[in-house]
Write a protein that binds this DNA or RNA. Structure first.
Length: 710
RNA sequence: GCCCGGAUGGUGGAAUCGGCAGACACAGCGGACUUAAAAUCCGCAGACCUGAAAGGGUCGUGGGGGUUCAAGUCCCCCUCCGGGCACCA
């Protein structure tokens, strides 16, 4: 028998047919198999209809690892699914007049064919498709649980609106002021009634957990840390002098409203600071233009009203040119004054464009001597600068503003003079609390997750609005459906529009329903859930994908979890990867799972680039995986993706390199074929000229390499 | 501005704990096979100097300093490129 010629076009389909034919080949085994388990997971794709090189790289890495662990004798779970809800299906519907459901399922089928051609070792018996009712009904189920636990609530607030998507976006979906799907489209602010998930309840745990996750890249942990943005400091109340109005609180600060019944209490401004030790150096108080007190004052001060309006307009303009963050500091005096409760000093109250309404209390004390921004502002407007931290070298004052060294000591600070800054921070906050004008406070940058979307192709929110508006229920007659009413099915053939409001609102058979409490007429919620809800827990469903009575069986999840290796793009660092950590903690608190973190190890692979730029249609540098497979075979394509650059770095796609890998595989094949006779003699029954393809042989080596890298 | 990466031949990159820099591959060059070409196989290949050749020598991992018997690798300073965050009080 002559040495076989390497012909992937012949070889690969043959073996893929063998693999497809044996269902159990890559199937995970039962929990009592006695083998150690290994859960290898790649982020599930959106079924756009076309696999791109980024997918190929992601899945080649996961596949090599899964096979490696499988061959080492682990019980491996290596599933795949489809993040199948989302806007592109609606856009396609508008464009081609194809229903989103049909379009999506067709794409899934096409991509599955591509994945099989890639020779990826998925256990298709555990496949999850998020747009099918047997999956999304559990989104609804979780939502009801969260309503019950007060983790889901509805409120009116300023939200991000993408005019192209014609829907609201979560904060995490706004990238550089633009929509995450439309990087050239600026997000607008709109005031809307929306459902929110109380992710902030877990802010501390989400943050502190990051330090106990050595298997996650430092980069991702840092991004999450910054996103959560915990600041420890204090709030201190400055009384507005000469005011005899009711206390006005910033909008988010509902807790403090108790001490509000005293009608003649002076208006107070609560400021948040991380450096309460420098309060003796405060020479003004600065309010955000949107601050509640400012809204009061402009009613009787038309000059102030005009100035503030202009400030807001300027900010909006800056946001539109992308210059927000660089605009010059700018402020107007309100003519009012406030009293520093620590030393009784009366300082002017200003409105300034660099104060954010939605961070802290929307108001600060300005300490120009020890804060750069305050210094810049004070210099511009001639406000006094008062040093309260001793210079590092006595008699040689360092340049202002100075934030103080570790050992810095306070000066000119009344009874705290001579205290070390760090200690003074603690003591002064405690003092303020005993005196009732302040307290230690922690604020977060993280906001609750807005999950309402004014779109059709998503999970219906299982809530109704009773027209009778019962007593004792949430305001406005908001009624949660009973579990027995699930799933709330998405109606099938409807007209997709992109005008204001969800397309579901125009489907009477969907909207009109009855109240589960009184039986009277009711209107369904027509917004759908953010698609990031779907991907927040999909990897739990893989362990028990066909369960019709529950999202999953806890025993199965507890066996497989945590995910041993999660692999995907870094672009989800503060989207999917923070939402799914939140969801995991919620499920843990519902008693459904043991573990509080979903993944032991996370790997973020680099981008695939071509001619120095990320592959994209607009740049015209897209390389089609299908074409590569056709020309060089799946093995060469995959092996090149693994070999040509370290998995965590960007990979420059060079077709000559794929050709080189293909030649390498041909050599391996010839070499093995040459010895096939001997192998045949040793193992009667094996076809000598049909040595298993490079997929297995090559990947043992690459798997070992990968493990070291991961 | 702040945080995190990165910089090694013509090219992608390797060097895992401080121990022969340039693995492997692409492109290139020479040879074999062929009527010829492709494919395949064998070989050469960091730069510079030197030698007829075999060989010998000097320099060399973005730049500058340092530690060490020994530095791509550790320390300090700087430049450039990529990414993230960005008035967060």
């Amino acid at each position: 028998m002559q040495a076989g010629r390497y012909n992937p076009a012949e070889l690969e389909p043959k073996w893929q047919a063998v693999w497809d034919g044996s269902d159990s080949l890559y199937a995970a085994e039962a929990h009592d198999s006695g083998k150690p388990k290994f859960y290898c997971l790649e982020m599930l794709p959106y079924p756009s209809g076309q696999l791109h090189m980024g997918h190929v790289r992601n899945y080649a890495i996961g596949d090599a690892l899964a096979r490696f662990m499988w061959m080492r004798g682990f019980n491996v779970l290596h599933p795949m699914g489809w993040d199948a809800f989302g806007l592109p299906a609606e856009n396609a519907a508008l464009k081609n007049n194809t229903p989103p459901r049909e379009w999506t399922l067709k794409n899934i089928a096409a991509m599955k064919v591509q994945m099989r051609r890639m020779g990826l070792s998925y256990d298709w018996a555990t496949e999850v498709t998020t747009c099918l009712p047997d999956y999304y009904r559990w989104n609804q189920w979780f939502f009801l649980k969260m309503v019950e636990k007060d983790l889901a609530y509805k409120k009116s607030s300023k939200v991000n609106w993408c005019p192209k998507c014609a829907t609201v976006l979560a904060n995490e979906q706004v990238v550089g002021g633009c929509c995450w799907r439309h990087e050239d489209t600026l997000v607008e602010q709109r005031e809307l009634e929306q459902w929110f998930l109380r992710i902030t309840k877990y802010a501390d745990e989400l943050l502190d957990g990051l330090d106990k996750m050595p298997g996650w890249p430092e980069k991702v942990r840092t991004m999450q840390k910054n996103w959560i943005g915990r600041s420890e400091g204090a709030t201190v109340e400055f009384a507005v002098s000469g005011e005899a109005e009711k206390q006005v609180l910033s909008e988010d600060d509902s807790q403090k409203s108790k001490s509000n019944d005293n009608g003649d209490a002076a208006a107070k401004i609560a400021v948040f600071t991380t450096r309460v030790d420098t309060i003796f150096g405060a020479t003004s108080v600065q309010l955000a233009p949107e601050h509640a007190l400012v809204k009061e004052w402009v009613k009787t001060d038309s000059k102030l009203a005009a100035d503030v309006e202009e400030m807001i307009a300027q900010q909006k303009a800056a946001r539109e040119t992308g210059d927000i963050g660089n605009i010059e500091k700018h402020g107007v005096s309100t003519g009012k004054h406030a009293v520093n409760p620590f030393n009784g000093a009366t300082v002017p109250v200003w409105v300034a464009n660099y104060i954010l309404a939605d961070y802290g209390t929307g108001a600060i004390m300005s300490v120009p001597a020890h804060d750069e921004r305050d210094f810049e502002f004070a210099t511009k407007y001639g406000l006094p600068v008062k040093r309260v931290i001793a210079p590092a070298v006595e008699g040689e004052p360092d340049a202002l503003p100075s934030t103080g060294e570790e050992e810095a000591v306070l000066i000119d600070s009344g009874e705290w003079t001579g205290e070390a800054c760090l200690e003074a921070q603690e003591k002064m906050a405690a003092f303020a609390e005993t005196k009732g004008f302040g307290k230690k406070t922690t604020t977060f940058r993280l906001k609750d997750w807005g999950v309402s979307r004014q779109r059709y192709w998503g999970t219906p929110i299982p809530m109704v609005y009773c027209k009778n508006g019962h007593e004792g229920l949430k305001p406005g007659g908001i009624v949660a459906l009973p579990e027995s009413a699930l799933p709330v099915l998405l109606p099938d053939s409807i007209e997709i529009t992109q005008e204001g409001g969800s397309p579901l609102g125009k489907v009477p058979s969907f909207v009109e329903t009855s109240c589960p409490v009184c039986g009277g007429p009711a209107r369904r919620e027509t917004d759908t859930m953010d698609t990031f809800v779907d991907s927040s827990w999909y990897f739990y469903r893989y362990t028990d994908a066909k369960n019709a009575g529950a999202p999953f069986d806890s025993a199965k999840v507890n066996y497989w979890f945590p995910i041993d290796q999660y692999i995907g793009g870094v672009e989800h660092a503060i989207l999917h990867l923070i939402y799914s950590r939140f969801w995991t903690k919620v499920m843990r608190d519902l008693g459904m799972i043991n573990n509080g973190e979903p993944a032991e190890r996370l790997f973020t692979q680099g981008m695939v680039i071509k001619d120095g730029a990320k592959m994209s249609k607009s740049k015209g540098n897209v390389v089609s995986p299908d074409l590569m497979i056709e020309k060089y075979g799946a093995d060469a394509t995959r092996m090149y993706a693994l070999f040509a650059a370290p998995p965590d770095r960007d990979l420059e796609w060079q077709e000559e390199g794929v050709a080189g890998v293909s030649r390498f595989l041909a050599r391996v094949y010839r070499l093995t074929s040459k010895y096939a006779e001997g192998v045949k003699a040793l193992e009667a029954g094996v076809n000598g000229d049909e040595i298993a393809p490079g997929m297995v042989a090559g990947q043992t080596v690459l798997g070992a390499k990968l493990l070291r890298t991961l």
